[in-house]
């Protein structure tokens, strides 16, 4: 079947089996690999995207359910002028990623949380940020979310940021 929806503001028409998870349409059909495969059972959150503004784990959403909807992925977070979303910038400022594989999903989850509640409390961060990070970057994820929303808590960098 052919399914029409939009990804990062761009209309797409995909010929796919109805049960194909959105994740694999993004990765294999559209070549958008910023959204990651981690577990396939919606347990880890590496595949998190926004569908009509709501956070979803794309490995467990059949593409047929996306028809007519607007999908935002990590590749679509930048502003129109190409600068980073404030959450992405906070992620760099706090030097969050280690292996980095889960961070697309972490950032999508953080953006959804901030869009929903504005300035999240620690308890709201605890409740909302349920994605797995094996490298254990959780303290810096918390720092980055607080920095993006309160302008505080960023890890100080002595050198190098944004040069060359």
């Amino acid at each position: 079947m052919t399914i029409a929806f939009s990804v990062n503001g761009k209309d797409v028409n995909i010929a796919a089996e109805a049960d194909t998870p959105l994740l694999w349409v993004l990765r294999d059909d559209l070549g958008m690999t910023g959204t990651k495969f981690g577990c396939g059972i919606a347990a880890c959150g590496a595949c998190s995207v926004h569908v009509d503004g709501a956070l979803m784990r794309s490995c467990s959403v059949p593409v047929s359910e996306i028809a007519g909807k607007a999908v935002t992925t990590i590749e679509g977070l930048k502003r129109a002028d190409g600068t980073l979303n404030r959450v992405q910038q906070a992620w760099i400022d706090a030097q969050v990623p280690q292996c980095g594989y889960c961070q697309s999903g972490q950032i999508m989850a953080a953006v959804a949380l901030i869009e929903q509640v504005g300035t999240p409390t620690d308890a709201q961060i605890d409740d909302a940020m349920t994605n797995i990070c094996r490298c254990g970057t959780y303290p810096r994820i918390r720092t980055a979310i607080l920095a993006a929303t309160q302008g505080a808590g960023a890890v100080a960098l002595a050198a190098d940021q944004g040069e060359a």
Binding site: G34, Q88, P97, S104, A158, A159, D160
Partner: peptide, 19 residues
């Protein structure tokens, strides 16, 4: 305390992993 060089590509989805 120097910023890691690999991090920017890991926050915008542009880093290409083996998979």
């Amino acid at each position: 305390p120097i910023a890691r060089r690999d991090i920017p590509a890991k926050v915008d989805g542009s880093a290409v992993y083996g998979i």
